[in-house]
């Protein structure tokens, strides 16, 4: 079932065309990775889905309803400045709930506890973000969106600044979180390996202006469950090389 849809979306900044008529339908409860050469317009697409930018023409819909601006149904996770430094881990997770009057105090507390557990930071609930690692901060940002009640997570290179091992762990965790919480995730990355490991589906974009050039259903090739062992399988490498090849070819058209 189509849940988040891009309908003939274009975006121009002045004279520069950044997204050229793109149509795309994303199913509920799936993890879709946007992949494309640097500067092709991935961030712009995400921001429009988040309601932080408006398409020049075309419409983006969530559950059939046109997106008019940001709201808590679509949470963003950025690479930097992702958590509020003046709030503790707990305070960050609870942040969005202060704008919901449908939750009682005890429900809020339960939700905070639930998401703390989900990201495994129970012992750090009272720590401030600058006292925890970069990977933990990104977990907090994820939990904060979920606690606020997001149905969709829009993640723009969220693990881009992390070291390889932390990154790998977070990728595994993100897939677990997605499976447990049944959320729809759009994940932007430059890293082909990350894309192949995480994705149910990879959308490959052209160089600017962004246009869909390839739509790969990864679950058909690698299945729905991913373990770290799957990362070393032959199918994984084959797909990774294939995607790498495609994106390389696309990046070359720019120069």
């Amino acid at each position: 079932m189509d849940y988040l849809t891009f309908e003939k979306v274009t975006k121009r900044f002045g004279d520069v065309s950044v997204v050229s008529e793109s149509s795309l339908a994303i199913a509920r409860n799936s993890l879709v990775v946007f992949l494309g050469p640097s500067g092709c317009g991935k961030t712009t697409l995400m921001r429009m889905a988040g309601g932080l930018d408006t398409p020049t023409t075309g419409t983006i819909r969530l559950g059939g309803e046109a997106i008019a601006g940001p709201d808590r149904r679509r949470g963003m996770v950025f690479q930097s400045y992702s958590s509020f430094p003046w709030l503790t881990v707990e305070g960050n997770i609870a942040f969005g709930m202060r704008y919901r009057d449908d939750l009682h105090a005890h429900q809020r507390a339960e939700r905070v506890a639930h998401y703390l557990k989900l990201i495994g930071l129970e012992d750090f609930s009272k720590s401030f973000p600058n006292r925890i690692s970069g990977g933990m901060r990104q977990r907090v940002a994820i939990a904060r969106s979920l606690a606020a009640g997001s149905d969709v997570l829009l993640m723009d290179e969220p693990f881009g600044a992390l070291d390889a091992l932390t990154r790998e762990r977070l990728q595994v965790e993100l897939r677990q979180i997605q499976a447990e919480e049944k959320k729809t995730i759009i994940f932007v990355t430059h890293d082909v390996e990350e894309a192949v490991f995480l994705a149910d589906r990879i959308i490959l974009f052209s160089a600017r202006p962004a246009r869909v050039i390839k739509d790969i259903i990864v679950t058909k090739i690698l299945g729905a469950t991913r373990t770290l062992a799957a990362r070393e399988s032959q199918e994984f490498f084959k797909l990774r090389n294939e995607v790498l090849h495609l994106i390389r070819k696309e990046a070359e058209t720019v120069r």
Binding site: G50, L52, P70, R72, M76, S82, F95, G96, G149
Partner: peptide, 13 residues
Amino acid sequence: PHEYVEIAFTLGA
């Protein structure tokens, strides 16, 4: 940072 402002908006503020 504009990120903080935008995050807050997407959290329902």
